[in-house]
Amino acid sequence: MSAVREQSHAVFQATAVTLANRSRERFAVRVLTLITTLLILPLIAIISLLVAKGAPAMSLEFLLAAPVAGMTAGGIFPAIVGTLWLVGVSLAVAAPIGILAAVYLNEYAGDNWVTRIINLAIVNLAGVPSIVHALFGVGAFVLFLGMGTSILSASLTLAIMTLPVIIASTKEALASVPLAFREACWVLGASRWQTIRHVVLPNSISGILTGVILQVSRAAGETAPIMFTGAAFYLPFLPQSVYDQCMALSMHLFTVSTQVPNVPEAIPYATALVLLGLVMSVNLTSILFRSYLRSRRKW
């Protein structure tokens, strides 16, 4: 009630529309436009700078050759391969767990304290600093479970870290399927799982895919969680199994820009460009996919 009174009070003052009010409005809109432009600017600046300075070093050879001469020359092929390994394995772990967890939250969980705790846990999983995830990976996977520093340890760490991304977007996709469809199935004697399996999942699969794509982009860009769990500065060979270590694009960018002296400027720029290009294109795919889906609903 008091909110209503406050509001009508505010409204009462505002009825005297003065020229000052109008100019204040114009000023405010101008400031807000400026602020928003200030956010677009760095995005454009970063992309164009990376393109301008990285493009000279960019070539097919850069993408397909191994680094040589203490990483001051050559390409980034092993890092690309390593990132694909990490993303693939973490996706294989996070996608099923995340999707089923979202199914639980959207289709089974009641509105009670257990659900509140689960949601709080998910918020925290997303909020725990990435370096703490790394410590967890070291303590749990590398040491306790004896997986050593390996693709497996790093991917599991990444999987747990990116789980909230998949859960959040899958939940949204499931929630967009109208309740009426579920009721229509239940009333026909279909069980909860049959309804989910034959009606809810088929009609939200594309939204779920969008979330999975986002997870890929997150996992590809992370550095801290893989630093001590499986990514190496430099490896002379490509990984053969999930028990090997690997190089990674993000880790490689960190290495060549901070750890190695006398690297030609173009190499870190080109590496950053490849990483950013990968992450951005995956993200854009997800965004375009989403808007395409919104345009063609089955109901």
Binding site: L39, I40, P42, L43, I46, L50, S130, S217, A220, G221, E222, T223, A224, S250, M251, L253, F254, S257, P268, A272, L275, L276, V279, M280, N283, L284, I287
Partner: peptide
């Protein structure tokens, strides 16, 4: 979309 892309820039790229 711009905000989403801004969020997508990996932290190592920001550091760079």
């Amino acid at each position: 979309v711009v905000i989403e892309l801004l969020a997508a820039i990996p932290s190592v790229v920001w550091g760079f």
